[in-house]
């Protein structure tokens, strides 16, 4: 028992929550886009944009608040580009592949041009301070779980909860309707294009804050591809949550903690980390399989033609949304 308690050290809790934060913000962005009927694969790009612009703003003399705001705006602009492309009827998957590559390469190019020829940029900046909550901080377990993070960590979890509540209200319901059946939603008088554009813009901003968490919140430096696939993990986490807002926190925690767990595992045992790191991905595959299977079965029982559920999640053809 002691060994088990020892394994779940306070630092593991801390690492887990910190590693979860960018994933959670990205997952919110991904779920929001999916709910608006758009498969948004450019989360990685927006995170990198946020990470780079955030640090840029901080280095330019901005406060941490303006740095985060700048990151949000840069991500929102990227999201706006996607919204515009969607409006035109551009294939957003291809567009996102281009954006991801562009963000990865252009950020490093600009970094090298602006700050010299090296592969890392470490400006003299102060990252966000940790917030220590009085009273709670001193409670054993709970103190480690809840206290001692920077503001973005709390913001991420608050955003996830706000996102859940959002679906209880009218605009949220409209968004749900759009994601399920854009045609029907449009027929019911919902301004589908406006909802989709707004969702993509907000999603871009939220994902970018997830990137800014890494630079402005944690490390104060920028390196090539420093999000290291967090954007893709976020998309995966959103799918593990079946894009349900209420499930986003547990799904993201699973990914965040599997990393923390892996770190812990290799300092206490000889088990290969890969075992733990694989788990959340395998879990997502299982969830995707089960969800898909149930949807196919349900459709069959209702006598509807079998159609892969995935197909409905794809970006709608240009004319059906842009034209409506």
């Amino acid at each position: 028992m002691d060994a088990i308690l020892n394994f779940f050290s306070s630092e593991m809790l801390h690492s887990g929550i910190r590693l979860t934060t960018p994933i959670l913000l990205g997952a919110i962005a991904s779920a929001l886009s999916s709910r608006a009927g758009v498969l948004n694969l450019a989360i990685e790009a927006k995170m990198l944009v946020g990470a780079f612009v955030g640090l840029l703003a901080l280095d330019a003399g901005g406060s941490t608040f303006t740095a985060i705001l700048a990151a949000f705006l840069a991500g929102a602009i990227t999201g706006g580009l996607m919204a515009g492309a969607h409006r035109l009827g551009v294939d957003l998957i291809v567009f996102a592949i281009g954006l991801n590559m562009l963000a990865l390469e252009l950020s490093v190019y600009l970094m090298r041009v602006l700050f010299g020829g090296t592969g890392v940029w470490t400006p003299e900046v102060d990252t966000l301070d940790d917030i220590h909550i009085p009273f709670i901080e001193s409670i054993p377990f709970l103190g480690d779980l809840l206290s001692g993070y920077n503001v973005l960590v709390y913001l991420a979890f608050a955003a996830a909860i706000a996102f859940t509540l959002f679906f209880r209200y009218r605009p949220g319901r409209h968004l749900l309707a759009i994601g399920e059946a854009p045609g029907a939603a449009a027929a019911a008088g919902i301004a589908v294009p406006r909802y989709q554009a707004t969702s993509l813009i907000v999603a871009g901003g939220v994902a970018a804050v997830g990137g800014a968490f890494l630079t402005v919140g944690e490390l104060g430096l920028f390196t090539r591809g420093m999000t290291d696939g967090a954007g893709w993990i976020a998309v995966t986490a959103a799918l593990l949550a079946m894009n349900r807002p209420g499930f986003l926190i547990p799904a993201s925690l699973l990914f965040g903690f599997s990393d923390a767990f892996a770190i812990r595992l290799q300092s206490t045992t000889d088990l290969p980390q890969v075992v733990v790191q694989l788990l959340p991905f395998l879990a997502t595959l299982v969830v995707l399989g089960i969800v898909g299977y149930r949807a196919t079965r349900a459709a069959a029982l209702l006598g509807m033609p079998k159609r892969p559920r995935g197909a409905a999640k794809r970006p709608q053809p240009a004319t059906s949304t842009a034209g409506s």
């Binding site: 498969l39 991905f281 995707l288 399989g289 898909g292 196919t296 892969p308 559920r309």
Partner: peptide, 24 residues
């Protein structure tokens, strides 16, 4: 297989597979 027999989105499955192969 995921797409045809389980109706899952093959794009997402393939992204996850990339991560899995990378780790392995």
């Amino acid at each position: 297989v995921f797409r045809i027999f389980l109706g899952a989105n093959e794009l997402i499955v393939s992204i996850i597979l990339n991560s899995i192969v990378m780790l392995v």
